[in-house]
């Protein structure tokens, strides 16, 4: 049996199939922002299709495009490549809709969420405290390739 498993593993590795590692992303707002956010709405919020929740204007916040967490978010939540996003936002430009604002670090995102009502961002566990409200938790299986791009 062991022999077969070993052969199977060698086969999978040689085929380029990597075994996923669970990674957790916390979707948070400032403590003052009183809105419910479903994980299933994240894509439409970040694509600015959904702009109000319970009469509160939602302000999605992004990390820079080369940030590891942003890459994971784009890949597993938006499920879009940079090329697809560029085409999408070009078309939205013509309606006066622009991509979410970009802040340079998780620390900056945290500060923004604390100060601006309706703002929403994604952070790792290290940045959470009582000044933020967790709205939804995303557990994604990140593969070896994603970690290598870190």
């Amino acid at each position: 049996m062991k022999k077969y498993l070993l052969v199977l593993m060698i086969f999978l590795i040689s085929c380029g199939v990597s075994i996923g590692k669970e990674f957790t992303i916390y979707i948070v707002t400032g403590a003052k922002t009183d809105i419910d956010i479903k994980c299933s709405d994240l894509k439409s919020i970040y694509l600015k299709e959904k702009i109000f929740i319970k009469h509160v204007r939602v302000i999605p916040v992004n990390l820079p495009s080369d940030n590891f967490l942003r890459k994971i978010f784009n890949k597993y939540v938006l499920n879009m490549t940079q090329e697809e996003l560029n085409i999408y936002w070009n078309e939205k430009y013509y309606e006066g809709v622009v991509p979410p604002i970009v802040l340079k670090s998780q620390k900056a995102v945290k500060k923004f969420l604390q100060n601006v009502e309706g703002s929403i961002g994604y952070l790792t566990k290290d940045y959470l405290d009582k000044s933020l409200k967790i709205k939804c938790i995303l557990k994604v299986n990140v593969n070896e390739k994603d970690f290598n791009s870190r």
Binding site: I59, W89, Y93, V98, P99, I101
Partner: peptide, 8 residues
């Protein structure tokens, strides 16, 4: 390419 934003 994304225009000028003033205070959202």
């Amino acid at each position: 390419g994304r225009g000028l934003n003033i205070d959202n």
